[in-house]
Design a protein around this nucleic acid. Sequence first.
RNA 1: GGUCUCAUAGUUCAACGGAUAGAAUAGGAGUUUCCUAAACUCUUGAUCCAGGUUCGAUUCCUGGUGAGGCCA
Length: 614
Amino acid sequence: MDHLVGIRRDFVRCLAEKFGYNTTQDNVPVNETRREFSGDYTFVLFPYVKELRKSPAELGAVIGDWLVAHTDNIISYQVVQGFLNVSMSDGFWKHTLDDISSIKDYGSSPATGEKVIVEFSSPNTNKPLHLGHIRNILLGWSCARILEANGYDVIKTQVINDRGIAICKSMLAWQKFGNGATPESLQIKGDHMVGDYYVLFEKTFRTEYEMWQQSAEGQAIYQKLKKAGQDTDSFFKEYKNTYFNDYSVIGGEARQMLLDWEAGKPEVRALWHQMNGWVYRGFDETYTKLGVSFDCVYYESETYLLGKKAIDDGLQKGIFYRQDDGSVWVNLEDVGMDRKILLRSDGTSVYMTQDIGTAQKRYEDYGIRRMVYTVADEQDYHFKVLFEILRRMEEPYADGLHHLSYGMVELPTGRMKSREGTVVDADDLITEVISEVRTISEERGELAALPIEEQELILRQIGLGALKFFMIKVQPRKRMIFDPRESVDMQGQTGPYIQNAGVRIKSVLRKANTETAGSYDKYSDVSELEKALLRQLIQFPQVVKEAGINYDPSALANYAYQLARDYHRFYHEVRILNAPDAAAKNFRIALSGQVGRVLEKAFYLLGIEMPERM
RNA sequence: GGUCUCAUAGUUCAACGGAUAGAAUAGGAGUUUCCUAAACUCUUGAUCCAGGUUCGAUUCCUGGUGAGGCCA
């Protein structure tokens, strides 16, 4: 429901009546009046000045007079330059508050019956989750909730890359050096443990490689293949993959393990199940801490062979073509993209093939018409190509595909590099923000009287609130610099600042005994701060809608911040419980209640919890 | 080399083509007998460059510069 529908309609009616000019409500440029001018809403007159051949001043006066005379809501106006600023009556504000209070799920749209699948997180099983995953998870999760609020039936999913050479490296290292260790025996999360064996493999391999470089064989290769003037370091850096595939002992074992896995060799499969099982338990723990969950999971081990039939279909339809060597390609040059390989000459598929197959499988599984892929922007081109192919294949969901692309997370020192040990681990980060919150909370002493479990819950809510808000307030497509110090800030434009506004409201409502909240019919002189809050509340459904259309939770994050800021100001300026009269008190309590409700809902949509106290 | 994305206070972020470009942080100065001071008030400081479209451009278009990604 749009509370501005009324004034838009009146404006349109006025233009028709006074000037015989027809337009639609959607075309009416109406904004909130800027703080420095008096008025509540502003019509921009410039577009009509030319059309109607009237000066802005004249136009403003005619329309302003008409609006004041013909509507109950608008009580006065002022024309500044080409802007018509109108002031709304107390009645309008009170009715607005009534309306908002009466709407059950304010900000949500009715169900559309349309299903959408949202994919996010999508980790590899050989490494624990890190900072980049956190941004991905928060974006995907929040988008899922925002789409739900916009009436979609959302299915949340992740694709787990559980196969390939990487996990074989972990498996091999565990087999060689693990001595039967388990997460329980080592007292470590399973995903970290498996990640540690991956690192151990890489270390072992590197040692082996370095020794080989000194060997007669290594030196001979260097002398034979080096480019002019190339030194040993840069040569062997480039040669690493070839060495892994053609010479390395441990590399050969890992590759053999992959072959055994593909052949379904029981011992290898059993080990693979066991290690991935450890990883999943570790991931789930992290997901739980972050407060997210999935409706279904796709494993690459089950999808990596999909898509080959689609290639046959495409070949028959003439969308793809086969080269002499047997490889299959698609030519997208007519739309400014390249030729792209879909099936190698040996018949093996590439990522693209697999993604085509997975999309089809999802359609079969759920009948969805829309899919959202939350993947970093380094994959922009991949998804452009994928979507174009699916369009050409005339898949029924081809028009509902969206790549929720986001910029990489960098540290103040640059990109995270596992080689340099600068990868920020998700679990470590969460632990760190919570411990930071604990320190500050202890200084404040506000929670000291609460039971210990409740204290812990609140500390988690605040710590994660700080971290999540910090990451989600930035527009997805922008690259972000992550400074760990700033992520635990709790003053200013932060999660805890907004939580604090929510907590204040809860405290006020507790003391007010809300069930006895009475009428505010007699309230007059609605203050500027109160109007500002109501203008914000009116905006909320639109913000939710736009966040959905643009797949942009940051809009909602910034909205929540502004609403919280206006509430803090209001709170300082006026007395709520000790208001001068009952009508004022009731109005302010009701207003506080609605601000609290919207803040909580906005945070819900961002995946951030609102504590009871802090 | 081709192509995509980004560029706003010292720093981190905002601004459906609309008024004097907003916040936060950092620095300085204040606010507590009163509903939670993780708050509030005051103060210093910015649109990468050159054109174009427009009544009006941070926003749209063209070219350049810088940073990053993808492809080769």
